[in-house]
Design a protein around this nucleic acid. Structure first.
Lengths: 231, 231
DNA sequence: GCAAAAGTGTTCCAGATACACCCATGG
DNA sequence: CCATGGGTGTATCTGGAACACTTTTGC
């Protein structure tokens, strides 16, 4: 078989990326959901998505979709799963590669492209979404939990400076269960990957909570020596 | 924007599935590797793969590729990852969705389609493969380990009737580390998901090892009640 | 009778869990 | 001065890891 016939004979498909975008605000885990522009289902709630271009890798496409819709760059993203049922998109046969992203809502979030009508919604507030986007969110939550358990990705959702109660609150949201204050503190501090700052967050109590910063380079070193992150 | 222009304007891509096929034979974990037919790289070692057809889901495409190349049907398969770098396939821009499959080599494996020149190779014997297929295998091994840790997928690689030493041997191969005989036995039997048969495997010792069978329905019941599989 | 693999329990240790009181401060 | 959330240490429990001898039987 010649190169030409092998490749030129192959069917072609539309391929999209969809982004499950996590944020953390007011002690709650949230998702960025938009009102869809294109028909079918114009105006329905949906994840952010877009087609993969020629000459563009999947990772690049995901980053572009995020950038165009939020103005954000250099964001933590990870592939979730590739969804390929024939009729998953009622507008045509589209294979979709889902990515999840973790965003520090507090730090920036310029105007959320008004054009796209984007909203941060808590898990409870999420309405029914088009296509298999609901399933994607369910899958993403599972994956976020698994990943957060053994990788320090929680810090991607917090401001650079954060307090331990804040961090614990985040993990309680991710795991959807209460975590013991003292045990949590013991565990995270024992890993020796947080830098204690000489600064307090007085916004949630009179006493004020000490602020910390995640020391990425220290974490890298300790990783090399076989340390295992676990929360 | 009309439905027509939104979808018809979208770029189209070739989409393939590649299969990482695990088997277990003579106490060793093996992979099914083929000699590639199409140019470029005709004759080079490669994973089994094929293009996704129109009107065919990704899962169906993976099952078809496996069926056509091995004659096997109804095989455990799970999606691994979607690989989408622009130049990953030197013959053209092809997005590939990788699946891994678990096969009971012992039970069947008709003639491995001689046409395809397929071989079961141990991890050590695997040669350099084309494209990013080497990376796919590395990723698949990681995923197999993670999955096997909390899901009873090991049984997919063993004959219906197996001995505990055999089962332990399998997990030692998957994890690439020795497991304590007594602790392993204690743990797996405590889960109460194996049916002890009145039969022995005398092929590996004079004494003979008792055979067991995985009780899938019992496992299902226990799962419902919150039991957690872990090995 | 001996070689070779199968089968069997107990001790020890580390890490997880449970738990209650004092501290600092703004109002 | 008091209400509110922040910060701290210890006792207990559970599950994992280490470990050596007896059993069976084909040759």
């Amino acid at each position: 078989m010649s190169v030409t016939s092998f490749y030129t004979g192959a069917p072609r498909h539309m391929v999209a990326v969809d982004c499950i975008i996590f944020g953390f605000e007011n002690g709650q885990l949230k998702l960025l959901i938009v009102k869809r522009l294109p028909a079918p289902y114009h105006g329905a709630w949906s994840l952010m998505g877009g087609f993969v271009h020629d000459g563009e890798s999947l990772n690049d496409a995901a980053a572009r979709v995020l950038q165009v819709n939020t103005g954000l760059d250099n964001i933590y993203m990870d592939q979730l799963h590739c969804y390929g049922d024939v009729n998953r998109d009622t507008g045509g046969r589209v294979i979709s590669v889902a990515y999840y992203a973790l965003i520090r809502i507090s730090e920036h979030l310029p105007q959320l492209s008004a054009e796209y009508d984007a909203h941060w919604l808590t898990l409870q507030e999420i309405p029914d979404l088009i296509f298999d986007h609901g399933q994607m969110i369910t899958d993403a939550l599972m994956k976020l939990r698994d990943k957060a358990h053994f990788h320090p990705i929680g810090f991607e959702l917090l401001p650079e400076k954060f307090s331990l109660p804040q961090l614990r609150n985040l993990y309680e949201e991710i795991y959807q269960r209460p975590l013991d204050k003292r045990n949590f503190r013991k565990k995270i501090l024992a890993m020796d990957i947080l830098e204690k700052l000489d600064e307090k967050d007085k916004s949630t109590s009179k006493k004020g909570a000490n602020l910390y910063r995640f020391d990425k380079s220290k974490y890298g070193e300790l990783m090399q020596r076989g340390m295992v992150f676990e929360i």
